[in-house]
């Protein structure tokens, strides 16, 4: 079965086909017995959809190794089933916002709406914007900044690849642990004042938390 260890990427969202099931089946027909990475593009797949994909792959003697997708829903589902999964950010020039004559590019910002619950993990190769809470036991990370429109109660890691300029901002910053680049800090013991958004950043080799300022 493992005659070749090469990984073949199978895109299951193709306009040539009616839906992903038909697409997957017809593509697997050609690729019998290989290791597969599924690229589901922007499809939102649930755990049961992913189980279905694995079932279909087994019929064609194929082994699913990993998933990649631009949908964070799909990433969370495939991760909860124990697959290596990677979030991909679509590059598009449309995502530019003009504020105070400054161009803010959102081309590398990933947006996730909803609560990240205990045991879940979300990672972004760019910046990460979360509309919702990050609960205790959950982990979020990004190569750039992390902005949480909600409460941060879990673990956040900004500047995952070593960018020490990265920041972590939240409406309520009460994390278990904060990481920026290669620095680790435990969350503050005292509850923050209600109603003031806060930001964590590195200042003189230490992670500090201060009220969020926008310049």
């Amino acid at each position: 079965m493992n005659s070749n260890n090469q990984k073949i990427i199978v895109n299951i969202k193709d306009i040539k086909y009616q839906n992903w099931e038909i697409c997957l089946k017809s593509k697997l027909k050609i690729l019998k017995s290989s290791n597969i990475e599924i690229d589901s593009k922007n499809l939102d797949l649930s755990c049961s959809d992913i189980s279905e994909i694995i079932k279909i792959a087994n019929q064609y003697n194929c082994k699913i190794i990993s998933f990649c997708s631009t949908s964070s829903k799909t990433i969370v589902s495939s991760q909860s089933l124990g697959f290596k999964s990677q979030l991909i950010i679509e590059n598009s020039s449309k995502n530019t916002l003009k504020i105070n004559q400054k161009n803010l590019t959102f081309s590398k910002t990933h947006f996730h709406q909803g609560t990240i619950r205990s045991g879940e993990y979300l990672d972004s190769p760019g910046d990460l914007l979360i509309l919702g809470d990050v609960n205790p036991g959950a982990k979020v990370s990004a190569e750039g900044n992390i902005i949480i429109w909600g409460r941060l109660l879990g673990i956040a890691h900004a500047g995952r690849e070593g960018n020490s300029q990265a920041t972590i901002s939240a409406l309520q910053l009460r994390p278990v642990q904060l990481r920026i680049a290669n620095k680790v800090a435990r969350g503050p013991k005292t509850k923050p004042q209600f109603g003031i958004a806060e930001q964590a950043r590195i200042d003189s080799e230490e992670i500090i938390i201060s009220p969020l300022e926008t310049k």
């Binding site: 649930s46 049961s48 619950r117 045991g119 609960n135 205790p136 036991g137």
Partner: peptide
């Protein structure tokens, strides 16, 4: 209690991804 709430949160996440 904290541990039961944490585990419940994990379970709710799984229930949500399974619609």
């Amino acid at each position: 209690e904290v541990s039961a709430v944490r585990d419940a949160d994990r379970v709710i996440g799984l229930l949500n991804t399974n619609a």
